[in-house]
Amino acid sequence: MNPGGLDYNYEDWTTIMNMTAKTSVLNLTQEEFIYPGNRACSGCGLSILYRIGLKALGRDCIFVVPPSCLTVMQGLFPIAATQMPVLNCTFASTAAIATGVRAAMKRLGRDTQVVAWAGDGGTSDIGIQALSGALERVEDIIYICYDNEAYMNTGVQRSGTTPQGTLTTTTPLSGKAEASKNIPAIIAAHNPAYLATCSASYPLDFHDKLLKAKEIKGLKYLHIQTPCPPGWGCEERMTVEIGRTAVETGLFDLYEIEDGQMKLSGPSQKLLGKTSLRPVREYLEMQVRFKALSDEQINVMQAEIDQKWAGYRDTF
């Protein structure tokens, strides 16, 4: 709660956070960690996540960022939009650079949280080797993958997480032939300390998962579906709506894995009580990138979602 519009400082706010089960707009800190006027596109899902995510992480953090939209958003030399210390690094090395920073913090006796923040290409393709190594070594870092499902910063080329049938500049006309990689499943196979999926359309869910991650030792992995209007082919005002529709149709699920146990969280958990979900077609028709999908492909997709949720209802 924020009675009388009091602006809590970080310590007070952390205390409040620990007392409240869920963050709401009423108790979310008013402190900002990024300056207005950055280089994100209008309607950018990442900018929502970054602004709200930093409120959860607080100031005692060091960020490690490979080439991505975030590199640009954080500012071009000698001006920074972010107020955080940031180490920009080569594309393939995010988790290894974070390992080095963490090792230094250990030597210096500092608890500073090291946060690697990469895109889907930087995580699922070129960065997966370093990430797998960091997972195996149980590095004490938070790794955030904002998944906008293609190489958006270079102009919408297909990535490992681009869904089947998606139009990108390297999968033109008929869309991507191959299915996407299930990156959270690959991460889960490493038994991380904490794994969560999030959506840019539910930033407070992301916020609270970060608060939880901060308290856990070991590698914490957060995978966030992040709508991107220029890459997905939609109006800027549709960012939040599209992300919500991905969740409400049961296509993208929000869950956490702790001690090897998966449980649905937040909005996805609420869907368990429903006998039928919104059809996935609603999600697909909001975006130009899915225009190449045939009715048959959409039916297959729907059947897969239905089967997945039948399984969830049996399990949870």
Binding site: A96, A98, R107, A130
Partner: peptide, 27 residues
Amino acid sequence: DAEYVAVESEHSAMAVCIGAASAGVRP
């Protein structure tokens, strides 16, 4: 008295050195 990081590649070996040096520790 040092941290030994058994990395998964030379690319990462230099990455760890870059991270540590950038944070003020001799790698």
